[in-house]
Design a protein around this nucleic acid. Sequence first.
RNA 1: GGGCGUGUAGCUCAGUUGGUUAGAGCGCUUGCUUGACAUGCAAGAGGUCACAGAUUCGAGUUCUGUCACGCCCACCA
Length: 971
Amino acid sequence: MDFKSLPSQYDHAAAQAKWYPEWERRGYFHAQVGAKDADGKLKPPFTIVIPPPNVTGALHLGHALNETLQDILIRQKRMQGFNTLWMPGTDHAGIATQAVVERRLFEEEKKTRHDLGREGLIDRIWKWKEQYEARILGQLKQLGCSCDWERTQFTFNEHNSRAVREWFFKLFQDGKIYRGKRLVNWDTFLQTAVSDDEVFHEATKGHFWHFKYPVINPMPGEPEFVTIATTRPETMLGDTAVAVHPDPAKALDRAEVELKERLAAAPAKERDEIQKQIDAIGGRRQAVLPLLVKLRDMAKAGRKLMLPLANREIPLIADEWAKPELGSGCVKITPAHDANDYEVWQRHPEIGLTNIMTVEGLLNDSVPEIYRGLKMHTKAREAVVADMEAAGLYNPETDREDREIDLAHSDRSKTPIEPYLADQWFVKMDELAQTAMDAVRDGRVKITPERYAKGYLDWLGEKRDWPIGRQLWWGHRIPVWMRDCDFGQELNVVWNELVNDPNYRNGSLDFYIVRNSLHGQNDNVRHKNTIQVSDPSMPYARVYVASLSDGVLEKYEKDFEAELDDHGGVARQIPMWWRSDDVLDTWFSSALWPHSTLGWPDQTPELKTFYPTTTLITSRDIITLWVGRMVLAGLYIMGEVPFHEVYITPKILDGYGETMSKSKGNGVDPLDVIEKFGADALRFGLAYLTTDTQDVKLPVDFECPHCGAQFPQTKKNRQLPRIECEKCKQPFSTQWAEKLEDKALARGAVVSERFELGRNFCNKLWNASRFSLINLEGFTPGAVADQDLLIEDRWLLSRLSTVTQQVTDYLEKYRYADAARTLYDFAWNEFCSFYVEMTKARFAHVDESLLDSNSLLGDTRPRDKQVAQRVLAHALDTLLRLLHPMIPFLTEEVWQLLAQVAPQRGLSEPGGPPPRSEAQTSGSRTTRLATSAESICVAPWPTPDKARQDATIEAQFANFQAVLGAVREIR
RNA sequence: GGGCGUGUAGCUCAGUUGGUUAGAGCGCUUGCUUGACAUGCAAGAGGUCACAGAUUCGAGUUCUGUCACGCCCACCA
């Protein structure tokens, strides 16, 4: 081939189109169980499971960063001879996906999910999923990711559904799952509970209302009213008590002590504020304390208050939740609509609890008729405030303060959250969380950078039970059937016979039954042996059947009922089984990802070979939600951690320092970047900015496809499907284009200097390669004796060895930026600017007579072209291999070209034979030359050539630019 | 309120265990169509390393405090 005809610019599109399909076709990415190396030894496994991207939308640069870092590791390890498996897949992302599809449905067709019904909506979501999954996987391929596509997984496919079921069943069986009433964050728009993580707080203007509740039959000397304060007046209809501190004097003292401690430690600017609070406590001793003491005594005496508007008697109770230093010192207790009040109720169950809200967020039938159907935080609030005023228990002039309130909103629907008491499924976290904490503490799981371990441990340390039910349609439906029954007192009998009867177990424990009292606050799902009727006078119970497969219940239903009948305890009131409508939290399935993708619950060869996986590379915001849960699930199910190391990537922020997200619309589509700069440039640029601590701001510009003008992406334009160029005023389309008319427009690229760095570097490499190829004409393979090397050869080989060592070490420690920068500097400044320049003296292009007169050049006189060719081929070869994980396409393209002119290359190998080598005799000593692998993907990772490392030469040449300058001057 | 992180050139960022004159890329200025590369080459301007104090022969780097910004968690009757 005539290398001179190679274009002077690297054609990234051509290389990508050519090599990716070829790699796939040759099966380089497919991990075989039991793969062996050339010597017949079993290759050690190296496994990464991809953090499955949500099918809510396309990937943005944040993902691209994450995937690139994984691919760099995988490619390097593949070259190092590991049996590498990179497991790809996507996440169904329950609530997020459903919310996106529902929103779209409403925007485009003005329909809600109820118009479509469960089946209809799920059908729509599947279509959405197919579309975006394809797009995501396509993006990954464009990026060059060497995933094992034959194993592509989806958290909601048939296999994973089975795994989820198995996992649920196991937890259920072990008594780790229970059903309880809990206050949840209720999204009244989506009508589902959302987890704390799906809630964001927004400061809004609100008020602080002071209401008076009348004391019933006050005795002489007692107050006629108790004053309470609230930011949510409408909840008073659900009050079941008013609390006062059991020892207000002591509580005040303690508050004062705490404030004084804080004062001592506080920075100067906060001191005034704290001092004021301390002074206020002193004032309260005079003004409020006597009243609180009196109220406390009244509480102890069992006195009652009249709850206005509802006209219910509610008790005055003593509870530490009431803070004497705040407000009036008394607090209303609304157990069903406030988390703290709920806890008060748990300490004082006798006060009862009243849920006043419907799932739509309206007042329900437990409130007086005139309030029913009013929206909680709007109409109901107005009505309550107005009526309290009318009742003379509230004066808008004196009893209302303005106040900023951090109002909780649902991240998905952007509507205010209502705390709501609902039946929920929970996983008991105490022991599970502990195992996951231990694994990190004792180093079985190592988190890098280390500081992220703290958040992980703190979060798990709270051991808060995990609410796993979501009132959604898109997701793994909870495999539990329920029925309310009346067992009389024979429950134990029924129970034992049932579980011991092989008919119901179908040879294995196919379904599992638990129950507990309908009347307890929690229906604890317990292990069979601990079941008991806690209150014999209340023999009703709800029976829960968890089943591994849908058919079981139907199959045995009749037998089961007959059996129950025989024991005298059949569901007389509600003779129906019903299945839980809830689906599981999406993290419940993601928690299984490392082993479910490898085949669990089946004991597959893959599971044996590749579990535990090696490394997890993910972003920091899911350390707790995902990483922690994978660890505990892995330990629980597999008895072993799911991965040994976790690397937390930096975050890519936009020009404003905000994280990229779909909802903000500031995500950059990697395909835009790839199209313009190439995947190699994108990958290198991303690796280059992956430093240990620092998040990275990436201001991006739009580039007009018509006139080439660039102007910044802003908050205003970043979500538009079409944009008008600021210069030529012509419109172009963006990644958000969906309408045909928009899509028809030319697509405006998104550009950033970061990618220019990568692109320029690639081009530099391409041209250095071009130079090498051109000058390797007439190359003959062969060993090079040390004495034949010129000083610059020795210097380059030394540097090459040093750089090889450094890059290998850096990648081992996830120091991608250091690896990238080392290679960048070496390739550009040392290889290109210096060594390549120096070899010109030995190739034919330079007038030798000029060089002869140059004393500085010394040994570098153009006397040995052959040695130069061999060193050059070897150095380029090594450099390509070092760069391949970051720059896969270009390196492959050059590798193949290099093989044409120098199929066998390498100097002698003092360090022993590399893989895929062959013996060759040269002179008196036997040396080995490396033969190039058929693809750089499977070429061996370079090893440092310690024998050729020479610190003295490197130091001498550290100032090589001065030398180069001198050479030029002489010429 | 608790925790973590970050302030270095116009912009985006490096700067290991303290040690010559604080670096890179982009941008800017000046000059180069020489045979790998104008996506390049050469030269140049540009920094009170957020601020204050301490330790030290010596501080961008260590310590204390202050200010600013970002993120996470908790809470706010």
